[in-house]
Amino acid sequence: MSSLHDSSIIGSALVKRGLADMLRGGVIMDVVNPEQAKIAEDSGAVAVMALERVPSDIRRDGGVARMSDPEMIQGIQAAVTIPVMAKARIGHFAEAQILEALDVDYIDESEVLTPADEENHIDKWDFTVPFVCGATNLGEALRRIGEGACLIRSKGEAGTGNVVEAVRHLRTINAQMRRLQTADSNELFALAKELQAPLSLVQEVSLTGKLPVPLFCAGGISTPADASLVLQLGAEAIFVGSGIFKSDDPERMAKAIVEATTHFRDAHMVAKVSTGLGAAMKGIEIASLEQRLAERGW
């Protein structure tokens, strides 16, 4: 946080969390080039995630997955007017510093890339640009918020086209928040220990029944019906990775998922946009995976 020439302050928690508030009810799409970024913007995306390979390709190719080339990120920034996010490896604060220097609008400290530190996540308070982090349960979400994350997304299992893990993570986070709401104040100390989460955040969730930052869903969303499902489970917006540009007709799929996100409770509308969409991405059964990305980070 720092002062400008007048009494203005940049990088406060309010302005960092505020951008996440503005993305509510929207779809953030993974894109690998300016052409895809334009398609995303034309189809109503609220933001794009600039990366070199979508998760399903990272999964297929193997090897170490790193931050994208700055040239590629800048090309996407020049192509669209909506916010541009980019991914840094877990714990790789130097990649995050580079992304901040590039003026990206949000940094995803992401398990989709190969972790750079197996013990520590990035101290996100240290940055002016806000961070989003993945979580599989409430303890993990609150640890990330304790480190300064301004937005939490379910991890799901990226690049599979299979929404089952995202559903598991959302349901787990919600169930654990409900448990905190019914606990009395004496129990919160032990619950904080059990969750391995900062006590002050556990106490806050116990009072409010929700995370102190927005909760979005990521990992395996590939159809308008998937979008409607996770929004009805309490996600406030969605990230779609491989699900759009690995489908038969990306532009139609992108538009259909955007409509389904806005009208997620209107089954007639979701039915209408789901009709004649062509094939969604093929998808993978979770049990057959060799590498579970959601297990990265802790």
């Binding site: 009494s7 302050i9 940049i10």
Partner: peptide
């Protein structure tokens, strides 16, 4: 002007 005060890194609070 859209984003006339800059991208997210320049977002600010004031009175």
């Amino acid at each position: 002007r859209r984003n006339g005060y800059g991208r997210q890194i320049s977002s600010f609070e004031t009175v």
